[in-house]
Amino acid sequence: MAHQVNRIDYRGAFWFPVGPDELWRTIERFDRFESWWDWLRDFRTDSDALVAGNVLHATVVPPVPWRLSMDIRLERSQRPHLLEAVVAGDVGGSAVFRLEPDDDGTLVAVVWSLEMLSRPLRLAAIVAYPLMRWGHDRVVEMAVAGFRRRALDGSPT
């Protein structure tokens, strides 16, 4: 598969065993994010809801030797079906999350395109793109698995 060095384009879909309203409410539990995901650091938000204008600030520590600081600004929010965001920081780009009812649960379809903006990440993309892509994909897998395990099964954090 061809790729553009210095950018990660991602498309995926994940099913969760709760309806869109419950899933949306769970995603808004920002105070729990760092306990759900050990790769997430310094997480804070400007507002306590998934609303347009809210900015989520975080540092992501993937299983590769790079850290990423980012600000995710929610540009559009249609509860409980759609989030569109712009990402800035060490990476920049856009992301869309769509939540649709599906078989007594919710199918979440995600699409994003992120460009490496910081000098260390740009250099890493040139010399180690496969490793960078591997780290990105592992963080996505860990995010979904951690969310299912800790946020949706009712276990203590």
Rank of each mutant, 00 (worst) to 15 (best):
residue 35 S to D: 06
residue 103 D to M: 11
residue 93 G to Y: 01
residue 30 F to G: 09
residue 45 T to L: 02
residue 5 V to I: 15
residue 122 R to I: 04
residue 23 L to G: 08
residue 21 D to H: 14
residue 70 M to V: 06
residue 96 V to Q: 08
residue 125 A to P: 00
residue 108 V to I: 07
residue 6 N to C: 07
residue 93 G to I: 06
residue 31 D to H: 10
residue 38 D to G: 13
residue 115 E to T: 07
residue 27 I to K: 04
residue 34 E to R: 14
residue 106 T to H: 07
residue 57 H to L: 07
residue 85 A to F: 00
residue 117 L to T: 02
residue 73 R to C: 10
residue 83 L to A: 06
residue 70 M to L: 15
residue 13 A to C: 04
residue 56 L to N: 06
residue 46 D to T: 13
residue 72 I to Y: 08
residue 48 D to N: 14
residue 86 V to K: 08
residue 122 R to Q: 11
residue 92 G to I: 03
residue 68 L to P: 07
residue 103 D to W: 03
residue 13 A to M: 11
residue 126 I to V: 14
residue 88 A to L: 08
residue 60 V to E: 01
residue 91 V to H: 02
residue 90 D to R: 01
residue 60 V to R: 02
residue 123 L to W: 13
residue 98 R to T: 14
residue 94 S to Y: 08
residue 11 R to F: 09
residue 6 N to M: 12
residue 7 R to T: 09
residue 70 M to N: 11
residue 49 A to R: 15
residue 34 E to I: 05
residue 69 S to L: 07
residue 123 L to A: 15
residue 24 W to L: 05
residue 31 D to A: 12
residue 22 E to I: 14
residue 57 H to A: 00
residue 11 R to Q: 15
residue 122 R to E: 04
residue 83 L to M: 09
residue 28 E to K: 03
residue 84 E to G: 12
residue 25 R to D: 15
residue 40 L to N: 07
residue 34 E to N: 11
residue 110 V to N: 03
residue 57 H to S: 04
residue 76 R to I: 12
residue 86 V to I: 14
residue 94 S to N: 11
residue 40 L to C: 04
residue 69 S to D: 11
residue 47 S to T: 08
residue 96 V to Y: 00
residue 28 E to V: 05
residue 108 V to L: 08
residue 105 G to M: 07
residue 27 I to W: 08
residue 87 V to G: 01
residue 100 E to I: 09
residue 27 I to G: 07
residue 28 E to P: 03
residue 99 L to S: 05
residue 43 F to M: 13
residue 55 V to C: 08
residue 82 L to N: 05
residue 112 W to L: 12
residue 59 T to F: 02
residue 47 S to A: 14
residue 27 I to M: 13
residue 17 P to T: 04
residue 39 W to E: 12
residue 126 I to A: 11
residue 22 E to K: 15
residue 63 P to L: 13
residue 93 G to C: 03
residue 39 W to M: 15
residue 38 D to T: 14
residue 63 P to M: 06
residue 79 R to H: 10
residue 8 I to K: 01
residue 75 E to V: 15
residue 127 V to Q: 01
residue 54 N to T: 13
residue 14 F to P: 02
residue 7 R to K: 15
residue 24 W to T: 09
residue 41 R to P: 02
residue 25 R to L: 13
residue 29 R to A: 11
residue 47 S to M: 09
residue 129 Y to H: 03
residue 114 L to A: 07
residue 50 L to W: 06
residue 96 V to A: 04
residue 63 P to H: 09
residue 35 S to G: 09
residue 44 R to N: 09
residue 24 W to R: 05
residue 128 A to F: 03
residue 13 A to R: 15
residue 29 R to D: 13
residue 129 Y to G: 01
